[in-house]
Design a protein around this nucleic acid. Structure first.
Lengths: 208, 208
DNA sequence: GCATCAATCTGAACGTCATTTAGATTGATG
DNA sequence: CATCAATCTAAATGACGTTCAGATTGATGC
């Protein structure tokens, strides 16, 4: 549970262990509870060891953010797709917000551009790939071709398709639902009650 | 420019000076560049002095956040209002996003619930008051009575009215426009080109 | 005008943080 | 089996927030 036991002087796969440890810390204590020393301790190494595998704290957090985007992408990928574009877009948006609500630490991390190396190619690739299904659903709904990898990510219609869900996600993480509901899980209640009607108002379509 | 000169042992109005200094630092270097010691130095006092006026760093940042909400509220209050509800709502939303783009540090601060005492009554009051015009515009557009001070802030229609603008604001602060435009001020370009069409898609109304 | 008191500020300390460096350890190569 | 580069430790550095004893002073009561 605490520091990982280790028999040899070398760790074996410290890089992976640090990412794993960091993700756990962020899940348990949030991004603000994360420190490089904690991650090193949890992986069973000294505070200076991580520097051989990552460019400082930022490098490690960038790697964790990449994993977070991969998890988001995996969740969006398995959502059911119907023949109704509006419904598909709404399912993707709801999945996006649900991911943020269920993984507040990870979602906050991928939005903390001050903590991450946003120029990192793997990071940019991961952030692009994660939203593939969402993007396709939006393109189908708005009747446009989905942008390819070389094209700019955000077109006006895409901004529209992302902004509402992104805003709702942040509202949840900023604690708005707790002001509204006294249920055991206010965020869940928020998603189940407020969100569908919001998406309905944003992208009205009686075919859903 | 640097430390404020001081003739007497006592500062006179250190509380206000610390808030002023902190806001300047956050404007210049962002929230992540802020430290309590910097603020103390800029106000011309020792690192321990602020503790007599604020409950730690969080107390000071909460005071700065209150000021930030007041500035946001002041900007939204002077926006022109017409007889067309849809237009008024759109003007408020655009003002909201513009404030975020022009004051990235301050806007990030009021969203950093980990740095602020969100239970603070003055803070809650300020956050509520700042959005008065926005709320009224949304209520008029959706044909509902605006909620009074005692009522819960967010209803579904209000969440809808805020989510898109809030999401766009975060997208700007997360650097998305820089991926899109090569202009000297990508955020400005984003607002002037992408944003109106996004708001149009979100709240379609040919009376604007 | 003066003594007293509470508010305010300093200076130094403490523990934690990220990061760097010299040196110890060891897996891999020849 | 010797060599070498990769990996890790231990210690140090400087900045951070916070606390505390003591210095200073504005304000109050006389």
């Amino acid at each position: 549970m605490g520091a990982t036991e280790r028999d040899s002087y070398h760790h074996g796969d410290l890089r992976a262990a640090l990412i794993e440890a960091s993700e756990s810390i962020i899940r348990e204590e949030g991004v603000e509870g994360f420190t490089l020393r904690k991650a090193a301790k949890r992986a069973g190494v000294s505070p200076g060891a991580p520097s051989h595998h990552f460019k400082g704290t930022r490098g490690l957090l960038t790697a964790v953010a990449i994993r977070a985007f991969e998890r988001l992408g995996a969740e969006l990928a398995i959502l059911p797709a119907s023949g109704v574009p509006a419904r598909n877009l709404r399912v993707q948006a709801e999945g996006y917000v649900t991911f943020a609500a269920r993984n507040p630490g990870l979602f906050r991390l991928i939005c903390r551009v001050d903590l991450i190396d946003c120029q990192d190619q793997d990071f940019r690739e991961a952030s692009f790939s994660a939203l593939a299904h969402y993007r396709n659903a939006a393109a189908a709904y708005f009747g446009e071709d989905p942008p390819d990898r070389a094209a700019r990510i955000f077109r006006p219609y895409l901004a529209s398709a992302f902004a509402t869900a992104h805003g709702l996600a942040h509202m949840i993480l900023e604690g708005r639902p707790a002001l509204l509901f006294d249920t055991p899980d206010p965020a869940r209640t928020f998603i189940e009650t407020t969100l569908p009607s919001v998406l309905l108002a944003t992208w009205p379509d009686r075919h859903c």
